[in-house]
């Protein structure tokens, strides 16, 4: 677009301000992780590396970390299976209610977190008589992670010509062979990207988790939340926070890299990183 020099400069300033708004709070947090004092005062009186070994040795934080990894792995696995199945059905078949599937998949993430949390909690404790545990957390996480896998896979399926699968069938492959040798290899990067994002989503979730977790268990966000109000734990929390930022940036970055080469990029809350084939007439 042809913009005047003045508008371009104004626009650049707006972008710079926006990025500063996004990154300054993260920067301040990183600085606090090196705070030599164990109270939060600004500016920090001095800097130190001392809290890092303390945080790594903290057994509560470590247990919570591994719990989060476990939960995220199981929830992601379930989401991959269910999300892929749903997207295969929608992309390659016509059936009654096809349009509502995308809506159904999106619903757990489009509805506010407390709604999903209360609904699952009510169902587990009142109807099914299941005690809240990591199992119930996994069920909750898997439910809202499906959309991430679904959206990534379906975007790829739409781009993937159906004629490849038809050719495979014409050459005598049965549906399983076609899936294993033609469809799946083409879906690979979309699946990995979807899985990485689902993992990140689960790893970070706290609202639905607080409604579905048992009394004795802690995921990492729950551990952080519980320790925010304990003054003695603050330096360790600061360090854990920085480690969480670093660790969670990695999957998102790789998910982006995996799908970037294929065209535009975007990632909404629904997790579509891959832009669909340009919808330009």
């Amino acid at each position: 677009m042809r913009l005047s020099r003045r508008s371009t400069i104004l626009l650049r300033l707006a972008v710079a301000a926006g990025l500063a708004f996004i990154y300054i709070p993260l920067g301040i947090l990183v600085l606090y992780a090196f705070n030599s004092s164990n109270i939060l005062e600004w500016p920090p009186p001095g800097l130190t590396f001392d809290w890092f070994p303390r945080a790594i040795e903290d057994s509560g934080a470590r247990d919570a970390f591994f719990t989060s990894i476990k939960v995220a792995c199981v929830a992601t696995s379930i989401a991959i299976i269910l999300g892929t199945l749903a997207s295969l059905a929608v992309a390659r078949h016509r059936f009654f209610g096809r349009e509502t599937i995308s809506f159904l998949v999106l619903l757990p993430i489009a509805l506010p977190g407390i709604v999903t949390g209360v609904a699952l909690s009510d169902t587990f404790t009142q109807v099914l008589g299941i005690d809240l545990s990591l199992f119930t957390v996994v069920v909750g996480h898997a439910t809202f992670c499906i959309v991430v896998v679904y959206n990534n896979v379906i975007a790829r399926m739409r781009r993937l010509a159906g004629s490849l699968e038809e050719a495979s069938a014409d050459l005598g492959a049965d549906p399983w062979q076609t899936f294993a040798y033609v469809t799946l290899p083409n879906l690979q990067t979309a699946l990995v990207a979807g899985a990485l994002l689902a993992f990140a989503l689960s790893f970070d979730e706290i609202i639905v988790t607080t409604f579905t977790i048992g009394a004795a268990q802690e995921t990492l966000p729950i551990w952080i939340f519980a320790n925010l109000f304990r003054p003695n734990a603050l330096p360790v929390v600061n360090v854990v926070a920085v480690i969480v930022i670093l660790l969670s940036i990695i999957p998102v970055y790789f998910a982006h890299r995996l799908t970037r080469e294929e065209g535009g990029t975007a990632a909404t809350r629904g997790g579509t990183i891959e832009a669909e084939a340009t919808a330009v007439p």
């Binding site: 990025l19 947090l29 606090y32 990140a200 970055y253 990029t265």
Partner: peptide, 20 residues
């Protein structure tokens, strides 16, 4: 990438940062 990276992660950490 700059907008994407902080998106999926550390919700609680970000709120905490604002608290400070």
């Amino acid at each position: 990438v700059a907008v994407l990276l902080p998106l999926w992660s550390s919700y609680l950490v970000k709120v905490y940062s604002w608290r400070t």
